[in-house]
């Protein structure tokens, strides 16, 4: 939120514009996000996957994990839309349920990691002092530890880790980078006048963080949340692909792992690994696009200056003043 200088070049919004009930800034921001084409595409793709996840039981045609009841390695046909696996499962039904698993895991990881990064990063950064020193130390240590090996190591201690275990492993290890970013931003608020004013008003630090600081960090928190969904989905697929955790759950990672073990590549059974592989790519792409959209709204410096509309250009018959630098 950039402060306007005394001689600001950008015109301010009119102080006495005939006001309809003014919208809170976050509502305006959300509207703007939905005007960004990138974000719209992102939300559309994500929306499709979310719908699949919600309605999975109605969309699936077979039991996703019935182990060998169907003819193995059948190419896509009218009965088995996406073909069958080498173990005799319907790929389409498995993919539908896997979507549900992956989206859920992504969301759960995002909730855990985002909450931790907000609580630890924002509160410690704002509070300063000993609390901050301790939290910051833990954050630094976590950041130094190599991510993937750590996750693999922890996971391998949990035999047959189910989805819940994977969610916690991913959630508890992925907050530090986001927390550090939030801490840095929260620290800048400590000496802002409106925060001092809140302290003068006698409000507690906790309340001040909730009502004064966090509303100013909505875009950053949202950004984290989106990246963490992405990370959760990818992390889950990664772990399962390595064969860590229970193979009994339908998930994109398990499907890839099974296709790898079943030599799908050698057998030419492309229908086995394309759906999960493509899905992971598409979801992560969608989430990244959404994040770009948010960035563009929350950071106006990324925007190109508006071009003169042709009508105005014609009317003014201007001598263009090209941009100049010393």
């Amino acid at each position: 939120m950039s402060r306007q200088d005394a001689n600001t070049m950008e015109p301010q919004s009119p102080p006495d514009a005939r006001s309809r009930a003014p919208k809170p800034q976050w509502l305006q921001a959300i509207r703007q996000v939905f005007k960004e084409p990138k974000a719209v595409i992102g939300f559309a793709i994500l929306g499709i996957f979310v719908i699949i996840a919600i309605f999975a039981p109605y969309l699936a045609r077979f039991d996703p994990m019935n182990e060998g009841a169907l003819p193995p390695l059948t190419p896509p046909n009218k009965t088995y839309w996406f073909g069958t696996t080498g173990y005799g499962d319907d790929v389409y039904s498995q993919w539908i349920y896997a979507t549900r698993t992956s989206i859920c895991i992504g969301l759960e990881v995002a909730v855990i990691a985002t909450s931790l990064s907000v609580i630890l990063g924002v509160y410690a950064g704002f509070k300063g002092g000993k609390v901050d020193a301790v939290v910051n130390w833990v954050t630094q240590v976590m950041l130094v530890l190599p991510g993937y090996p750590l996750i693999i190591m922890i996971s391998s201690y949990i035999p047959n880790a189910g989805s819940q275990a994977i969610v916690w492993i991913l959630g508890l290890t992925s907050w530090p980078a986001a927390a550090r970013m939030k801490r840095a931003q929260a620290m800048t608020f400590r000496t802002r006048d409106f925060i001092l004013a809140a302290r003068l008003g006698g409000f507690s630090d906790f309340r001040t963080v909730c009502t004064e600081v966090l509303p100013n960090m909505v875009s950053l928190v949202f950004n984290t949340f989106i990246s963490m969904i992405s990370w959760g989905i990818f992390g889950e697929a990664f772990l399962r692909f390595l064969g860590i955790g229970s193979t009994r759950t339908p998930s994109w990672g398990n499907m890839l792992n099974a296709s790898q073990n079943g030599n799908a590549m050698m057998e030419g059974a492309w229908w086995w690994f394309i759906p999960p592989g493509l899905s992971i790519t598409m979801v992560i792409l969608a989430l990244t696009l959404i994040n770009y959209g948010i960035d563009e709204v929350s950071n106006p410096r990324l925007k190109k200056p508006p071009k003169l509309s042709k009508a105005i250009r014609d009317k003014l018959r201007l001598q263009a003043a090209e941009e100049g630098a010393v």
């Binding site: 939120m1 402060r3 306007q4 003014p22 809170p24 800034q25 976050w26 802002r192 006048d193 409106f194 001092l196 004013a197 302290r199 003068l200 008003g201 006698g202 009502t211 004064e212 509303p215 100013n216 909505v218």
Partner: peptide
Amino acid sequence: DLGTLRRQIQMVFQDPFGSLNPVRS
């Protein structure tokens, strides 16, 4: 105790652009 003090003494800041929270009405 600080609350008691600050009920008696308040402050008006220099920068009217920085002393109000941009996201609150």
